[in-house]
Write a protein that binds this DNA or RNA. Structure first.
Lengths: 192, 192
DNA sequence: GATTGGATCCTAGCACTGCTAGACAACCAA
DNA sequence: TTGGTTGTCTAGCAGTGCTAGGATCCAATC
């Protein structure tokens, strides 16, 4: 009984190790460098072990994405709760969001650019993803303005942030003026 | 002399065929299905022929991206020139942009999601890309509002459209409310 | 304490990828 | 007709995600 318990624990521990290692490797050298062979070598097991935890590489990416979603939700909530006034909250949210994307590009890719096999905008969407959206909604809903559905407003604001994050990181937008862009976005979109 | 001319023509023709075939295959089955072997088979040549035209797969993606940029610029200009009044022009631009992205998802991916090895926001950015941005700037610059740099405003508006396009296509946003989102975006961002 | 059954893990290999070296054939100028 | 250049293809490399089958170890049973 206790032996099985220990094995279960060790197994769960190894699964966390896989996800953490994949994330680390992706942040260091990009997702292209995250091959099943390299990943297996880093955790000091053979390749097939990965497949006893995950159905495939996609699911590993998905696991990193879920972890990232939880962290992003926490980061957004921490930033917004430390700000007073709707305007400041929205600005803090935007900075927290873009900051997270800039500091964790590989995780952000796992969440929104790569295929992690996750359901979105659906009833069987994993909880961390729903919660991350909820974290945005909490601060953005109050500045949607009259007659505008809070959910819809949040979607639009989120899309704008997502566009800024991805285009900036891909080199499509010069990074210098990020601050001005965020200001413009907050000033125009949010009804305070 | 005339023989060389003919050969040059045929070679250019084959290059167009490669790009068109890659694009077609990508739209039909996604970029993952665009392998050098499949592409070579479709154009009825062997693989190495591809490498006598392009340095690698990346450059083929880049070629599709440039073609797409030119088309998108044309689509945006056609839509905006048919609308009268700044507000209508911006709305038409947004619809043209999102419509292009929705109708040509693989081309849009080549332009903004995949690595086509193209320079951006740089002096040696290819002309079609600069021109596509210019097409946006032409209609968006006039609604930037007082004291806001037209280029900066265009970047922000573009980022918002890009976010809507990618999140919608990836299933992150339900496609039903696209129209409402565009309306909200245009109403809030554009100063008419 | 020896034996057996089952879980766990690894070696080896499959079919595929992008890309390239070197052999071969077709062509044109002399 | 010859010689050389140009163009193309066959064959192969190293790498990818993923899996079948065999080896090993360990806990429960006799």
């Amino acid at each position: 009984m206790s032996v099985q318990e220990r094995k279960r624990r060790e197994r769960a521990e190894r699964e966390r190790l896989i996800v953490a290692t994949a994330r680390e490797l992706a942040e260091q050298q990009g997702w292209d460098a995250v091959t099943t062979r390299r990943l297996a070598e880093r955790i000091e097991y053979s390749q097939p072990v990965l497949y006893s935890h995950f159905r495939g590489k996609r699911e590993i990416i998905g696991a990193v994405a879920l972890e990232g979603a939880a962290e992003m939700a926490a980061a957004v909530r921490a930033a917004t709760s430390a700000a007073d006034g709707p305007r400041e909250r929205v600005a803090a949210l935007a900075h927290a969001y873009l900051g997270f994307a800039a500091r964790n590009p590989a995780v952000y890719d796992a969440m929104f650019q790569l295929d992690g096999g996750l359901a979105f905008a659906d009833e069987d969407t994993p909880q961390p993803l729903k919660d991350a959206f909820a974290a945005l909604l909490e601060s953005l809903g109050e500045v949607a303005g009259d007659g505008v559905h809070p959910g819809l407003f949040t979607e639009v604001f989120w899309a704008a942030l997502h566009g800024l994050a991805t285009l900036t990181r891909a080199g499509r937008l010069p990074p210098e003026d990020t601050e001005s862009r965020v200001e413009l976005l907050v000033d125009r979109l949010a009804k305070v």
